[in-house]
Design a protein around this nucleic acid. Sequence first.
DNA 1: CTGAAAGCGCTTACAG
DNA 2: CTGAAAGCGCTTACAG
Lengths: 336, 336
Amino acid sequence: MQITIYDIARMANVSASTVSRVVNNKPNVNPKTRARILKLLAEHNYVPNEAARGLVTQNSHMIGILLTDIRTTHHTQGVYYIEQELSRHGYSCIIHNTGRDEQNWVHYIQELRQRKVEALILMGSIYQSDTMKEAIALYLPDLPVVICNGYFSAPNVYGIVSDEQGGVMECTGLLQRTGCRRPAFLMSRSTPSNELKKQGYLDGMGRYFPGLAPLAREIEPGAESTIAGTRALLGEHPDVDGIIFSDDNMAMVGLRALVDLDKRVPEDVQVIGINNAPFSSLTIPSLTSLDNMLYDVSMTAVRHVLALLLGQRVSKKMFISTEVVVRASTLPQAAY
Amino acid sequence: MQITIYDIARMANVSASTVSRVVNNKPNVNPKTRARILKLLAEHNYVPNEAARGLVTQNSHMIGILLTDIRTTHHTQGVYYIEQELSRHGYSCIIHNTGRDEQNWVHYIQELRQRKVEALILMGSIYQSDTMKEAIALYLPDLPVVICNGYFSAPNVYGIVSDEQGGVMECTGLLQRTGCRRPAFLMSRSTPSNELKKQGYLDGMGRYFPGLAPLAREIEPGAESTIAGTRALLGEHPDVDGIIFSDDNMAMVGLRALVDLDKRVPEDVQVIGINNAPFSSLTIPSLTSLDNMLYDVSMTAVRHVLALLLGQRVSKKMFISTEVVVRASTLPQAAY
DNA sequence: CTGAAAGCGCTTACAG
DNA sequence: CTGAAAGCGCTTACAG
């Protein structure tokens, strides 16, 4: 059915070994023989079978990537860079949407083991969990595993974490410098990352608004709930004049909610998002946002994976600093 | 290094054949033997090697998915549904960002053949091209190939196409019914899909604005160019009071450009986007958009793939009708 | 109900 | 420079 190395060997009157050498561009083949085989290979449109090859060489040239939901733009950005770079190095990516239910994760880990992926990349702090840690220990104990924006201690696990906590603290500082009197923090689901953001807000309150009680709330994910949460926040605390949302999507929805409440942004309420999403500059007004450097995190993740695959040692845990990108949803800062 | 069926066989004092039967849940195994093996399997945390298995069964349980850029939200939505459904049926997805340069596509097709994927899904009308057609004919001539929103004639190729042409014509009709006098069409890159949208606009002009010269322009992709294009359009044709953008991202940018020009939307200029992206309801004002039913297209694509894998016959080319979702960026329609 | 044997398509020492 | 042979980990008739 499919043309094999043996078919070519027969046609060229050589052994399969020789054909294999030619296919893999190895030395020790008579130039003329090589040329003849090469011609045959091309004519018959030969493509080696990776499964057979992997079986003997014990590698698959496949990398597993897990994320909760490929529709999350923020993660997709990272996956893009990762896939491009890996592809350039001859690796293919098996990408799975695992959802947020930890129970289903084990299934995917098993599947990746079954396929003999050579490394695993976990996109998102949510995988910084005991379930995942156990699954890795059980099924992939000696595979390079790199977590983007998360970490847990295991011999084969590496983490690249962006300093969102420090970043959100800086956002709070920005609000203080722009004259905000009562900054609040609105977050969705409690992931390790979001907990850090919250902590950053609390740190910032302690540092830049000493004496003022922090106002941090967790709301259900989704646009409706964000709108309701924003309304509720301003209803109960009409003095709130600055809101940090735990991501840009929420902030964009928040912008809408505020307009609907007849609040001017940034004059009445300043707004800050997180992620520095591509649309941040397109909202009206454009959105001040904490850039958590996903590009750097992702590129570092690939480099780590590639290095580990070559048997090199890399840092187990790495921090990447973040940066506030100031746009029109916050007021100008007073000069120092 | 890895535990194999032979290791288990030795421990259980049976042959590898028997272990294989147990692993694959096949009949003709003594219940007691089965139980003993099952226990061993679990204890040793056995997971079969897919490559070896695939080598003999001649299947890989992998499906290839090609898209130009995984960061394109519109396509990601579809990939999400597809991956979920395929995963549910025991298939894993190899996803590649091929870029828009046709020259690189062949490489990916070869790679997928090398991995013996069992089917191929192409996301986006851009793959409706001769390059792709030739690559498929050469390397994957007998694999089910399904194109989302595109089609070309080949024995093994199936297309699911959303009726964007008719949809855009309807958008033009909507503009007519909302009192628009001079509707324009702004498109980015010329893909087959965008050409159809343009044709839909031209059809609509002929039908709903007979005698009025169509005003369709192609601009470079990217926010800057969309802003410039919108400004130029209104600069040269100040009477334009309605714009259909070829996608929601452009429309969102257009909204910004119009605000910056001191144009009110929809009072001065009505705006319509395409895709019905999740953020359509979040922009200010919310965006009237043509829903091209990507969910339906994607789900149909998976069903086709699954059916074809079972050897069933499915329609070679399928049309899916589209629907205009009216929001606040267009004026209310006059009652009939 | 069970096992020996062949074979999937390839690579890799080893011997010549 | 070349080939015969073994083996990667599994499945599947076939014979018992």
